[in-house]
Amino acid sequence: MRIGRNLEEFDDPIELREDFLRRLAQGLSRNMSPFERDDIVKEVRTHLVASSAAFEELGLNSIDAMKEAIERFGDAERIKRQLSEQVRPPRPEFLPASLSIVVSFVIGGVLLTLADFAIYLTGVVSHPSEGSWMIGGVIGSMVGWAIYRRPRRPLVSAVRAGLIVPSTLLVAVSLLNGRLPDATFATVFLVGIGICEFAVGFLAAHAIHVVTRDCHRTGRPPAALE
């Protein structure tokens, strides 16, 4: 399938070429920046100029040479689709990521509320905490996001360990100094903070991975540092 009007309708090569380019540009993804679209159009224009010049050297007149150049360029619908697909955002990932976060928010909120109520029933605290569902939800959503990402790299383990070990030590020291009332409270606190740190570790590792992933391939520093 060719884009644009029928080639036979044109008798001016420049008009034919620009009609082709205009329709190609209109079909390119809106996710492309105007600069990218202009760049591609400019490049294809150069291609068609060179190609039609080659056909003119073979003896074709200018309009037939341009028609031949456009024919030889190929299936423009497929080409613009391929060009557009490269810049398409990862929409299929958006839904499962959102679901993972929302479901984990609910689970986290329910679990921490139940845990808080259980602590209240043991008599350690005089009344249930207000807003524990919210804290549990936030922790849960961070874990949900972390589980969704699952970055399996040595860097992840290093970041997680780097965050979890100091926080564990912090809780232990706090307990020993009497700032935490008892071991039960400290255990709940430790588990909670551990989950948080686990999630933060995942997120930090993911952020590092995103920033550096192109560096491994290109050997260049992160774009943000250039």
């Binding site: 294809v44 030889r72 360029f73 190929g74 299936d75 391929q82 060009l83």
Partner: peptide
């Protein structure tokens, strides 16, 4: 044999 435009993607 392929369309010359194929190289651009």
């Amino acid at each position: 044999s392929f369309g010359e435009g194929t190289v651009y993607p």
